[in-house]
């Protein structure tokens, strides 16, 4: 019984940790034109802790990242790595787990020290279904200036899972 209790507590703990993290990031990259560019970016991204897999596509102009369980990676860190490789990180499609909060009709999700503010162009049918609490969602994070990255993003939710 005691063992079962420990398992339940650990499960709850690991679940809550897993909830606040990025799960998948499809990062749009502008300016990447050649194989060594893709190689360099792929290698740079792979050096970051918390990744399960990375694939870079020159023709799509994207880096596809699957994040490991219990990672503490941030979108800011990913976009900084893109910039360090000499390219421009643009919008990103992310899948994330986080805590959805409502502050005066403004929704936001906190993930690993970053805040994703739900933008008003999120479809109404999604906005009306939002509820405070833990959530897993897919959304498009809007482009921010590479030189002025902060820990706050605007996200247009496309699906609540």
């Amino acid at each position: 019984m005691k063992k079962l209790g420990i398992i339940v507590v650990l499960s709850i703990f690991s679940f809550s940790t897993a909830m606040a993290q990025l799960v998948k990031v499809d990062q749009e990259v502008f300016g990447m034109d050649c194989a060594p560019c893709a190689y360099g970016l792929e290698r740079g991204l792979k050096k970051m802790d918390g990744l399960q897999s990375v694939k870079v596509s020159l023709n799509d102009g994207k880096a596809y990242l699957k994040l490991a369980a219990d990672n503490d990676l941030s979108l800011q860190k990913i976009q900084k790595e893109v910039k360090n490789n000499g390219f421009s990180a643009r919008s990103a499609e992310v899948t994330l787990n986080g805590e959805l909060v409502n502050d005066g009709n403004k929704w936001s999700v906190s993930v690993n020290g970053e805040t994703f503010k739900v933008s008003l162009d999120t479809p109404d049918d999604i906005l009306t279904k939002l509820k405070p609490g833990k959530v897993q969602l897919i959304g498009r994070v809007k482009d921010e200036e590479d030189d002025g990255l902060s820990n706050t993003w605007n996200i247009r939710i496309t699906e609540v899972l």
Binding site: V29, F30, G31, M32, D33, N59, G86, F87, S88
Partner: peptide, 13 residues
């Protein structure tokens, strides 16, 4: 020193 860079599209700069 690359003093100007404008990546304005997929693969384009």
């Amino acid at each position: 020193y690359r003093f100007f860079s404008n990546a304005f599209g997929v693969g384009k700069r």
